[in-house]
Amino acid sequence: MSLISDDTAAAAVPQKGRSPWADARRRFFRNKAAMLGLAILVFVTAFALFGNVLAQWSNEELDFMVMGQVAELGGPTLSNGHYFGTDDLGRDLYARTVQGTQISLAVGIIGALIAVIVGTTYGATAGYVGGRVDTLMMRFVDIFMAVPYMFILILLLVMYGRSIGMLFVGVGMISWMDMSRIVRGQTLSLKGREFVEAARATGVPAPVIIARHIIPNLLGVIAVYATLLVPLMILTESFISFLGLGVQEPLTSLGALISEGADTLNYGTTWQLAFPLLFFILTLFGFFFVGDGLRDALDPKDR
């Protein structure tokens, strides 16, 4: 064609395309609140992963020097290596906070991951197949949504013992349902788009259409929702731990630490509440800011 003749010399090198992802990334990095959130998250994650390097005590050791006089001697100080002070039993709160942050992040991320994998597959399948299958699958979700999940979760923890594995199962089980609804709704609107019709007309098999055409176009929504889901999972876990049904000693989580700190607040040991709470709030802030930034960056209405 005539269009080509002008610059055949330059034609040999394929130009790099500007993908919708690259656009979103640029918008995200320009968002100050989101970058602050990301910085906080990087800090909290680094604290959880490498915080133990700085710790002078392990989380299990009892410091007999402060035991019994925690309110007087167990405060945060650099001199005896208890940066965040000690807890009621004389254990190093710094090491305990590192451990609690690890567990809380793990619960949040694993819970959100289960939600993303199960919810996306379920919702995309229901939405794409449609008809009776869709009705059946979504009514099933409706019924499960109507069950008071906290009650069931507590029952499960009581019946099968309070293990961290059970907690993951319980949190994951409830988290995917909202996700599947959102994904199904988005799939329904994508299914009517012409590029999906084009793929169907060409004879692309349904699983490939879901994987190649539907899910990549859903990833924005999924990413936003997953980032906002992580803090919700952390909150759920904290609530259960606060009730005393969550992770068990010697493991701990931010929720369990906050619960302990709140119990001993009357003895004048404010630091036992303050430090876990600080990391808890930082984590939640970080995730919410990043989630908000992702939404702004990926929202198709902004384009």
Partner: peptide
């Protein structure tokens, strides 16, 4: 039997490159 659609932009997957879009029927058939 192949088809060309009315809305040129909507009939192309926004997350695929031109090369991937044109190659898709070949990959299938």
């Amino acid at each position: 039997i192949q088809m060309v659609f009315q809305d040129p932009l909507a009939s192309l997957n926004p997350r695929m490159t031109l090369g991937q879009i044109i190659a898709e029927p070949l990959k299938t058939h």
